[in-house]
């Protein structure tokens, strides 16, 4: 089993599905936070093991599940899933 599968991701329910954040992979670049068209995300105040601030969901109701956060993330640390359908990107 790969390391990625062993790690626990954080999951938030949003109207059309889910947002996952794998905090250990995040390097805190802020791309997902900045480019989310609906301002669903913000940088958390806590640090991950590498000393970066991962994103967290602050406005779940606003998420339209466009998948842009997943597309722009350079670190495979955030992704979305449509309710009942798996990955939407």
């Amino acid at each position: 089993m790969s390391e990625l599968q062993e790690r626990a991701a954080k999951l938030w329910k949003v109207p059309k599905g889910y947002i996952y954040v794998l905090e250990e992979f995040c390097k805190g670049c802020g791309f997902c936070v900045e480019f989310c068209p609906k301002k669903v995300l913000a940088q958390a105040s806590h640090f991950n093991d590498k000393g970066y601030h991962p994103p967290e969901v602050v406005d779940p109701e606003a998420c339209v599940l466009c998948g842009f956060c997943e597309r722009i993330c350079p670190d495979f640390a955030i992704w979305v899933e449509e309710e009942g359908k798996g990955d939407v990107s």
Binding site: L4, Q5, E6, R7, A8, A9, K10, L11, W12, Y20, V21, L22, E56, V57, E70, F76, W79, E81, G86, D87, S89
Partner: peptide, 11 residues
């Protein structure tokens, strides 16, 4: 958030 082990990035 909930913690979910064993999830996979779509790629």
């Amino acid at each position: 958030p909930e913690f979910v082990p064993g999830v996979r990035h779509p790629l």
